[in-house]
Design a protein around this nucleic acid. Structure first.
Length: 741
DNA sequence: CCTAGAATATCA
DNA sequence: GATATTCTAGGT
């Protein structure tokens, strides 16, 4: 596969000389390979090009070959006669020392093999030649030997154009000749093809004049970029306070200095609006990076990052592992967002790793949010991060008035989910020419399908969860493993037909209710299920072509809906019910984010929270709108319990297709606890995980609690390798877990 | 004694 | 992680 991908590169690879091992030159180098291996493999260095750390090389491995990165000098761990020689060095920019150091430190922090970390940084498919951009022709300096009138006209036209290079087609048109004349000059070597640089337009300066708060914040971050050196900022501003303008000033300063900036966003859907704003501000499109990038764009972006040709990048969490060569600034927008945490394969928090990378690179990092995560807030309070506050909305717009609606007093009719006050408020918002947003964090039609006769509940065959009813697709879906089955007509247990009933609300069902209540309104259903249409739908909402929007989590993030007058949180209690120590924090953030969508254009706006427990401290805190008090209270509780961010957790999940094996390994880990405990480290468990079966794996859970001051990673790694664990059992270590499922 | 699939070891 | 090697149950 790599051979075909490298078809274009092969001709330029510097192939190592044909010496055998044992020849005079038997210098070793260590090559790190992008796979689940922690240590670099030793190879004999090629003798012609003297390789230095960071260079990409092709090496023989088993029967075939692999691409790796020169990492170290090599050690004596493998006998000389077993060594193979590096087969070629690849014509690619080297991984910078900064990038390599970052990968090392990230691997150590997350207790991940270094090769796995490297695999986040490149795949063979990303390295191939980027698609050729627009090309033009220019003079080579070679004089015109056989000059014809047409040929001379072409050269004159090029000279008259003022620019060094023109597209061949345009040049021919200007000279009034056919394209064949230009081709002839190319063949004669008088003209040559060159890549046309997209004209770097001048820095246009601030798109808006900044208000005094913005100006003060911008001044601080710009100075930090200019001064160089690591600094962490919490840029905290209510939704609509203009955080983006502030951090773009820092990006501009980095660009002025020829340094690269990375803006991390929690979601691909958000990149559109940020890309637009960057384009407006800088007159150039930023480099983009996310999982849906197509092959050509991916190769181009990777190359641009590695060669330093592109200065501004925006992307999802994986963009943090791009091979930047001159990093000057990292921005993490919506830093509180849970999607910065990667939970599969390599487990890491892109927000935390951003701080790590910025620290190692000696550059500033800006964490921007309206609702800081507790970790970030505590760091700011302790003075580790400098806090820049934007207390007011741009243009004096007001935050919505927020009220709780007590579902015990305003109970919706059976099979309905909107209470009287919410229906009324939607009507008022529409009557006033505004929009309403109904937020329900549940995809699909209903979270359960139960048999009305015997009470059977449809469950996933691979996981310990209920299947979710998706009526539009006529399917039952597992939201964890993707398992699906057609909607059953009769109960698989009692066999009675026509009694399988959806139970509880999902956004599809809510949309049905809205259609019945407001048949005239233009409605839009937004959930991550529509992967492609999402951007358009959001655009329609922002442009006011929608009256009522029914949405899941995706609407809570960063979008700007100027005409929004009402936000209703249909079930404010959902997140509070989980068995999760971060539930309160997350509910607070989500609800505050959603309600923050309203009232950006000035005028009055309202946020209603439907809840069965209006007295709950989190609900009260949201209604009061006092996030400082809420976070202060939460921090006090966590500190008393030595919980994060005051202590450090490492969650351990032991998973296997065989229930007994999982339990045995988990118990053995517990028996070896003495390798871990001491120095204040404690171990809880083992116990079956709350999701005891997931993707057909039986899961047991342990929890390591450590004081922040001790380096828990080495201890945990030694502890893990102390148990003899069959390959069929996986032990996952999650440093700083976000949830305990 | 063979085969296929699962479990295990190893890559330099 | 990918894959060559070894193990093992089941079949001929």
């Amino acid at each position: 596969v790599t051979d075909s991908l490298f078809g274009d590169l092969d001709g330029r690879e510097s192939v190592a000389g044909s010496g055998r091992p044992g020849d005079r030159d038997d210098r070793r180098i260590g090559v790190l390979l992008p796979r689940a291996v922690d240590a670099p493999f030793d190879y004999l260095a090629p003798r012609q090009p003297r390789l230095s750390p960071g260079e990409f090389v092709r090496v023989p491995l088993r029967g075939g070959d692999a691409i790796g990165v020169v990492w170290t000098d090599g050690d004596e761990s493998v006998a000389a006669h077993r060594l193979k020689r590096v087969s070629a060095s690849l014509p690619l920019p080297s991984l910078s020392a900064e990038t390599r150091r970052f990968l090392e430190r990230a691997a150590a922090y997350t207790v991940t093999p270094r090769g796995m970390m490297l695999s986040l940084c490149f795949r063979p498919g990303w390295l191939g030649p980027p698609p050729r951009g627009p090309e033009g022709v220019q003079r080579t300096g070679k004089p015109l030997a056989r000059g014809t009138a047409a040929r001379q006209a072409v050269l004159d036209a090029l000279a008259d154009s003022g620019s060094a290079a023109l597209p061949a087609r345009e040049l021919a048109a200007r000279a009034g000749v056919s394209a064949g004349v230009v081709r002839g000059l190319l063949a004669a070597g008088v003209l040559a093809r060159v890549a046309l640089q997209p004209r770097p337009r001048a820095n246009r300066g601030p798109a808006l004049t900044l208000n005094p708060d913005q100006a003060a914040a911008a001044d601080a971050v710009v100075k930090a970029v200019a001064a160089g050196g690591h600094r962490s900022f919490l840029l905290q501003g209510v939704t609509g306070s203009g955080k983006t303008e502030v951090y773009l000033e820092a990006v501009a300063e980095a660009a002025r200095r020829g340094l690269q900036s990375l803006i991390l966003l929690p979601e691909i859907a958000l990149t559109d609006s940020v890309v637009r704003r960057i384009s407006e501000r800088f007159g150039a499109v930023p480099g983009l990076w996310h999982s849906r990038l197509a092959g050509g764009a991916r190769r181009a972006a990777w190359r641009a990052a590695a060669e330093g040709r592109q200065l501004i990048f925006a992307g999802a969490r994986s963009a943090l592992f791009l091979p930047f060569c001159r990093l000057g600034l990292i921005v993490v927008d919506e830093e509180h967002d849970a999607s910065f945490k990667q939970e599969d394969k390599v487990i890491y928090s892109a927000r935390d790793m951003s701080v790590l990378r910025a620290h190692g690179a000696g550059v500033p990092v800006i964490l921007a949010t309206a609702t800081p995560s507790l970790e970030t807030w505590v760091n700011a309070r302790r003075g580790r991060y400098r806090r820049l506050a934007l207390p007011a909305r741009v243009g004096g717009a007001l935050l919505p008035e927020t009220r709780a609606v007590d579902l015990r007093r305003h109970r919706p009719p059976p099979g309905r989910w909107l209470s009287g006050p919410v229906v009324e408020a939607v009507g008022e918002a529409l009557a006033a020419g505004g929009q309403a947003l109904l937020f329900l964090n549940r995809r699909g039609y209903a979270p359960l399908l139960v048999c009305g006769e015997c009470g059977y509940r449809a469950v996933c065959r691979n996981c310990d969860v209920s299947l979710v009813v998706h009526r539009a697709r006529q399917e039952l879906l597992c939201h964890h493993c993707g398992y699906r089955e057609p909607m059953p007509r009769h109960c698989p247990v009692c066999g009675i037909e026509g009694q399988m009933r959806p139970s509880g609300p999902g956004v599809e069902r809510l949309a049905e209710e809205v259609a019945a209540r407001f048949p005239e309104a233009r409605r839009s259903l937004l959930s991550s299920d529509l992967s492609d249409g999402l951007g358009e739908e959001l655009e329609a909402m922002a442009a006011g072509r929608v009256d009522i929007c029914i949405g899941t989590q995706v609407v809570a993030k960063g979008h700007n809906f100027p005409k929004l007058r009402l936000v209703a949180v249909v079930d404010a209690d959902i997140c509070l019910s989980g068995s999760d120590f971060r539930a309160g924090e997350r509910t607070f953030q989500t609800v505050r984010q959603v309600t923050g969508r309203a009232g950006r254009e000035g005028g009055r706006s309202l946020a209603l929270l439907q809840t069965a427990d209006p007295g709950h401290p989190v609900i009260q805190a949201i209604v009061a709108g006092d996030s400082e008090a809420f976070l202060g209270e939460l921090a006090g509780q966590r500190e008393a319990a030595a919980a994060p961010p005051f202590g450090r957790y490492v969650a351990v999940i032991v998973a296997s297709g065989n229930a007994g094996q999982s339990e045995a390994v988990a118990r053995q880990l517990a028996r070896n606890a003495r390798l871990l405990t001491g120095a204040g480290i404690r171990l809880l468990g083992p116990a079956p995980a709350p999701l005891a079966r997931l993707r057909s794996k039986w899961r047991w859970r342990l929890l390591v609690l450590a004081p922040r001051a001790v380096r828990v990673q080495e201890a945990v790694a030694a502890w893990r390798s102390s148990v003899d664990c069959p390959a069929s059992v996986s032990i996952r270590l999650d440093v700083d877990p976000q949830n305990f499922l």
